[in-house]
Simulated assay, not measured.
Amino acid sequence: MKPIDPLPKTPRDNRPLSVRVYERLRDLIIQEKLPPETQLVQGQVADALEVSRTPVRDALNRLTHERLVTWTPGHGHVVNEVRAQDIRYVYQVREPLEALAARQSAGRHSAVQISRLNALVEEMALIDPADCDAQFSLNRRFHMSLFEPCENFVLLQMIESLWDHPLTLRITRSYEHNADAVADAVATHRDIVHAAREGDPDRLAELMTAHWQRLTESLLRGAGS
């Protein structure tokens, strides 16, 4: 296991220690500072973070539930690879949900909302394609801004939870954006904004579906599937 810095002592952070340990390990895995096949021994992790074993055990259990690590009897916890199957599972769910949210948002965008969507697209076009964090943030903001007029709060909560899911972040970080991928996303987003301005629900849902299908195929190629 690569060296891990001790958990910062932040007196104003009143969250349970297990949550802070979980977030540290989750972020290290997403950033691949704890790469796939890394063995996470409970005692070693606790010593490195300078905490007791109990919050580490709780954090590892949560990471196991989220499929970032796997527990094997006799071997302990090991950081997982991102599998082609994981990518399929995530995007099989995201594609129909976002197409539905786009359809339900059509014809309801104000001029201000359209202007905001355009600004996000152009900002994405200017950001370094290799800056995964910035690209992810802008992409997320664009999609959630597109769905603002949707009144189905349950649908919106489900979509937000998928964007925030650690596996989604892990998949995004695993395959760095390149100039061609970003250019394709920007072009698609411009088409989506145009459809939103026209208030065309069928076109908006069609573009959203095609967008996620192309992204899924690109990620699967990167995963060697």
Rank of each mutant, 00 (worst) to 15 (best):
K2D: 03
D5A: 13
P6T: 03
R12G: 02
D13N: 13
R15S: 13
V21I: 11
V21M: 13
V21A: 10
R24M: 03
L25H: 12
R26T: 00
D27N: 15
D27K: 13
K33T: 00
L34D: 08
L40W: 11
V41T: 12
Q44R: 14
V45Q: 06
A48V: 01
L49E: 05
E50N: 13
R53S: 06
R57C: 09
D58M: 06
P73S: 10
G76H: 04
H77R: 15
N80P: 01
E81T: 05
Q85F: 06
Q85D: 15
Q85L: 12
D86T: 04
D86G: 02
V93D: 09
L97W: 09
A101V: 01
A102I: 05
A106K: 11
R108G: 02
M124P: 05
M124K: 10
D128F: 06
D131C: 07
S137E: 15
L138S: 06
N139G: 12
N139H: 09
R141M: 03
F142K: 14
F142C: 11
H143S: 06
M144E: 15
S145K: 01
S145E: 12
L146C: 02
F147D: 01
N152S: 09
F153M: 10
Q157H: 12
M158G: 04
T168Y: 14
T168C: 11
T168M: 14
R170P: 05
R170F: 14
I171A: 06
I171M: 04
I171W: 04
Y175W: 08
N178G: 07
A181C: 00
V182S: 06
V186R: 13
H189D: 15
V193L: 07
A196N: 09
G199M: 04
G199Q: 05
D200A: 03
P201T: 00
L204S: 07
T209W: 11
A210E: 15
L215D: 01
L215S: 10
E217H: 11
G222Y: 09
